[in-house]
């Protein structure tokens, strides 16, 4: 075959692969939802996965939240002080954490801490033919292995994001009020006056639920689709982190455009 035709043929192969992978991902996602019965009937399975995905991510989430909040406090104070309005520091820290940083950074950390682990685990289960063994014993691997992990991720994510935001606000309080000496009363009262429960906090929670679905679904799919070799599993783990990080940032932009348009 002549060279230009070969290039076009390669393009065609990539397109076909992409389409079939997307189709497989969609059917896989649907299968998770359809086989979720076991995840709730035998809730112990899901609790086990919440421990691995949620509880073990706590340390990194809490420490990152604290430091992000502290940095926000320092940097925000620098700028606000120029305009003599350092009492709105609480508003700055709380709004940026609750609306954006809490859900997004917590989800990014979750993707690299728990998402990669899920992919590696399921990829190895597939490579060592544990999933096939389950099918042999008439146990549905999607219901027994995949669905509990999915729901564990969806349940853990909003809690981790809320903890991240709360910890960040505490960090901002430590730096702003305790260290620099912004007035404590105005720090909290300005925050309460400007942060709305429905508009800001609930929208943040909705964001984190969406991120939880996206990250866990991508991690599970990459693991389930991984080539059953050492190389394949490592490639899938990398793809999980890259794809879900990009998905989080893209989804965040779309959700923000819908949620906060027209809110001053």
């Amino acid at each position: 075959m002549i060279a230009p035709l070969r290039v076009i043929a390669r393009l065609g192969r990539y397109t076909l692969n992409g389409v079939s992978r997307t189709g497989f991902a969609a059917r896989f996602f649907l299968a998770i939802l359809l086989h979720s019965g076991t995840a709730f009937r035998r809730f112990g399975l899901t609790i086990r996965e919440i421990y691995f995905a949620g509880v073990l991510s706590l340390i990194i989430i809490l420490v990152s939240g604290l430091f992000v909040g502290m940095v926000l406090g320092l940097q925000g104070y620098e700028t606000l002080e120029t305009y003599g309005s350092e009492e709105v520091l609480g508003v700055l820290v709380a709004l940026s954490l609750v609306r954006e940083l809490g859900p997004v950074v917590a989800a990014l950390l979750f993707a690299s801490r728990a998402g990669s682990a899920i992919t590696a685990e399921i990829g190895l289960m597939k490579a060592t033919e544990q999933l096939s063994a389950m099918e042999m014993m008439a146990v549905d691997p999607v219901a027994r292995v995949v669905a509990p992990r999915f729901w564990a991720g969806v349940i853990s994510m909003p809690m981790l994001a809320a903890l991240f935001s709360a910890m960040g606000i505490f960090g901002g309080y430590l730096v702003g009020v305790v260290m620099i000496g912004v007035d404590e009363g105005s720090f909290w009262s300005q925050m309460q006056a400007k942060v709305d429960f429905g508009e800001d906090i609930l929208n943040g929670v909705i964001k984190s639920v969406v991120f939880g679905v996206a990250v866990t679904a991508i991690a599970l799919f990459e693991g389930y689709d991984a080539p059953p070799t050492a190389e394949g599993v490592s490639g899938a783990t990398t793809r999980t982190v890259v794809t879900s990080s990009l998905a989080i940032l893209g989804l965040d932009f779309i959700l923000t455009a819908f949620m906060f348009r027209g809110v001053s």
Partner: peptide, 8 residues
């Protein structure tokens, strides 16, 4: 977040 940070 609901009680201390935000308000209705």
């Amino acid at each position: 977040l609901a009680l201390k940070v935000g308000s209705m």
